[in-house]
Design a protein around this nucleic acid. Structure first.
Lengths: 232, 232
DNA sequence: CCTTATAATTGATAATTGTCAACTGGATAG
DNA sequence: CTATCCAGTTGACAATTATCAATTATAAGG
C-alpha cells in the first residue's frame, strides 16, 4: 500500500471514528492490488473472504440467474463494497468485476469482524454505512416497482445532471448497455426511451446529454427524495 | 406492557446480547399499543420517531409514488421494522399499516440510538439485523430484475410451500391482491399467471394451494439460495 | 489508413404486462 | 333471505417491453 493512500482511507466515513491503533492493525492485514479492466473480483455465491475498498478505477456489481445478468450498481473511489456479506460471514449475493484498471484494498473479513467487536467507533460507522446502503436498495426497489422504464430513465438523467453540477450539458459516465441493465431494461428499449424523451427537451448524442427543458423533464420524472436522493 | 411480553422480547435476536440494565432502560421508555386493522402506523417521508416492534398481528410495509402504491413486505411477530431509519435518524422510506388487529411496541428512536452507543452487544445485534435486512432487499432486487412475473410467482409458491412444512397443500397467508403487489404485478396478471402454472401441477382454489408436480414447478422456478432463501 | 470488433440504433415482430369493463361468487349486514 | 360489497376472475384490448435481425456508428489494433 502506498503511504499516501492512508489519509484518504482514514478519512473514509467507515474508518474515521476508529481508534488509531485499530486502524493500523486493520491496515497491516490489508492487501493492496491493482487489477486490469474486466477482471472478475468476486463471484456470487462464494464465501466472503475480504472486505473490498476501491481506491482507484471503477467496479461493477452484478448478479446472475438462469443465464440472465443484471447490473446492480457501480462502485467508485473511495468506497467499500460487500460489507454486509463480510459482517454476516455469508456468501456474496453479487459478483464484481473491474470496469477499468482499478486499485483495491482487500481487508480480510475475519479481521474486519474482529475489529468490529473491539472498536465501538468502528461498529457505529459500520451500522451507519449499512443503514445507508439498506436505504439505497429500498429506494431502488421503489424505483423499479413504481415507475415505468421511461420514468426511470428520466430520473436517472436528472440524477446525473445533479451530479454534473446542474450543467445543461454533461457526459454519461457509463456505457448505455450498462445503464440499460442498471435501469432494468434492454439496450434497445433504452435507445427508444431516449428518443421518446425528445419532446421533453432531452437530446443524447453519443455520451453527451443535453437537457433543454428542465421543468418539462422534471414534470415527467417527478423525482422524489424518498426514491432518488441516493444519500440521506 | 404486559410483563409476559418481556421474555419474548428479550429473546429477540436484537435484544438478546444486551446488558440487562440497558434492556430495562429501553423497555422503560417503551410504549405498547394495540391498533385495529387498517390503521396507518407510519407514513413515508415522516421522521423516524420510534422503532416499531410487532408483538401480535400483522403489519404491511408499502411505498407510494405518483398515486401508485406497492407492497414491499409484511412484518409478522415478533420482529422490528424501520430499523434503518431509526439508526440514521432519517425519514421513513416506507409507510406501514396494520393488516389485522395488532399489538406493537414503540421504542423512541433517540433511546434506541443512545443505547446503541452505550451497549456494544446491542450494537453488534443491530448490525447483524441490518446486514440481514440489506441482504434480503438485495435478493428482492434480483428477483424483480432477473425473473418474469410467472417465475416470481412460482418461486413465491415454493417459498410458501417450504414455510408450510412442505405440505402438498397449504393456504396462502395473504390476499391475492397483496401477493400481486408484493410480486410487482397487477391482480389480473396474477390471476392469469396462476392459470399458466396449471401445467406445472399447481392448483389454487381460493386460498388453498396444491402442488402436484413439485419437480416440474421447481424446474420452472429454479429457486436459488442467493435469491429465495430469505434468511442466510 | 484500413480492418475488425463491439456498441448503438432501427425496424419488424412477438411476448409480457397493464387497463378497463363486466361478471362471478363468497361474505356480511340488515 | 336479500341486498350489498368487494376480492377475484375473465375477456377484450392497449401499452410496454423484449427479441431477433439488420444496419450504422464508434473505437481499438495493426
Amino acid at each position: 500500500m502506498r503511504p499516501s493512500d492512508l489519509p484518504d482511507l482514514r478519512n473514509l466515513e467507515l474508518f474515521r471514528d476508529m481508534e488509531e491503533a485499530r486502524f493500523e492493525e486493520l491496515m497491516h492485514a490489508a492487501y493492496v492490488q491493482t487489477f486490469p479492466p474486466q477482471v472478475d473480483l468476486i463471484t456470487e455465491g462464494d464465501m466472503s473472504d475480504f472486505l473490498h475498498i476501491v481506491l482507484e478505477g471503477r467496479v461493477e456489481l452484478f448478479a446472475s440467474w438462469n443465464k440472465r445478468e443484471t447490473v446492480i450498481a457501480t462502485v467508485e473511489p473511495i468506497s467499500t463494497f460487500i460489507l454486509a456479506a463480510t459482517i454476516k460471514d455469508a456468501p456474496y449475493l453479487m459478483s464484481a468485476r473491474t470496469l477499468e484498471k482499478s486499485r483495491l484494498i482487500l481487508l480480510p473479513s475475519s479481521d474486519v469482524r474482529a475489529v468490529f467487536d473491539a472498536d465501538s467507533g468502528f461498529a457505529r460507522s459500520v451500522v451507519t454505512e449499512l443503514a445507508a446502503r439498506y436505504r439505497s436498495v429500498v429506494k431502488n426497489t421503489k424505483n423499479l416497482k413504481l415507475r415505468s422504464s421511461i420514468e426511470r430513465l428520466a430520473n436517472y438523467l436528472l440524477q446525473q445532471y445533479e451530479e454534473a453540477g446542474q450543467a445543461p450539458t454533461y457526459d454519461l459516465t457509463m456505457e448505455k448497455r450498462k445503464i440499460a441493465s442498471l435501469l432494468g431494461m434492454t439496450p434497445e428499449n433504452l435507445s427508444r426511451a431516449i428518443k421518446s424523451l425528445r419532446p421533453y427537451g432531452v437530446t443524447i448524442d453519443g455520451q453527451c446529454v443535453t437537457i433543454d427543458k428542465l421543468g418539462d423533464l422534471q414534470g415527467l420524472a417527478k423525482p422524489s427524495p424518498l426514491i432518488d436522493d441516493l444519500n440521506r
